[in-house]
């Protein structure tokens, strides 16, 4: 792998993780805030709220995982490496 490809891969890996984590991070924060408020208001609905939170977290965090996987592939199994 030549030096330009290596440098571009490292920069792209950092951007993939960094930019990919911004949106899910904001979304997870607001979702967790709403869930904790809901549990505090209605403790009897705690199970359902946590279940819904699990669903939403799993889908939001998968966006982070996509970026993470792209970064790891670029770093450890780079398809552009000659």
């Amino acid at each position: 792998m030549d030096s330009i490809t290596t440098a571009a891969s490292v920069v792209a890996a950092g951007l993939a993780v960094g930019l990919g984590a911004i949106g899910p991070g904001i979304g997870q924060g607001s979702a967790a805030q709403g869930a904790v408020e809901g549990i505090a208001r209605q403790p009897e609905a705690e199970g359902k709220i946590r279940g819904t939170l699990l669903l939403s977290f799993a889908f939001m965090e998968s966006l982070t995982i996509y970026g993470l996987v792209v970064a790891l592939v670029l770093l450890f199994a780079n398809p552009f490496a000659g």
Binding site: A35, V36, A40, L68, L72
Partner: peptide, 21 residues
């Protein structure tokens, strides 16, 4: 969340990293 932790931990993200490696 809400009982013993104030935030949801990120330790689960180590699993896809280990998987890809």
């Amino acid at each position: 969340l809400g009982s013993s932790q104030k935030i949801v931990g990120k330790i689960q993200l180590i699993i896809p990293v280990i998987l890809v490696l």
